[in-house]
Amino acid sequence: MSRVEARGLGVVLGGRAVLAGVDLRADAGEWLAVIGANGAGKSTLLRALAGLLPHSGEVLVDGTPVRGLRPRERARLLAYAPQTPALPGDMTVFDYALLGRTPYIPHLGRESRADREVTGSVLERLDLTALAGRTLGHLSGGERQRVVLARALTQRASVLLLDEPTTALDLGHQQQVLELLDRLRLADGLTVVTTLHDLSVAGQYADRMTLVADGGAAATGTPEQVLTEELIGEHFDARVRVVAGTGGRPQVHLERP
Results as ranks from 00 to 15, higher is better:
L196M: 14
V240M: 02
E255F: 13
A130K: 12
R70I: 01
T167M: 03
A213G: 08
Q251D: 02
A213P: 01
L171Q: 06
T84I: 03
A79V: 09
L169K: 09
R110D: 07
A157H: 03
P85T: 04
P85F: 10
L32V: 09
G68E: 15
G215L: 13
A213M: 12
A50V: 04
E229L: 03
V59D: 00
D207I: 04
W31M: 12
G216D: 10
T64G: 07
R25Y: 03
V226S: 08
S2D: 02
T167C: 02
G247E: 09
R183C: 00
T222L: 12
P106Q: 00
R185N: 07
R113P: 01
D214F: 11
F236L: 03
E58A: 10
V18E: 12
V226W: 00
A48E: 04
I105W: 01
L139R: 05
L87V: 08
L9W: 08
T64C: 08
F94P: 05
V11N: 05
I232W: 11
R76W: 00
L153I: 14
R256S: 13
A168G: 04
R146E: 13
V18G: 14
A28V: 03
V242M: 00
G29T: 08
R185F: 05
L162E: 09
P54V: 01
L69R: 10
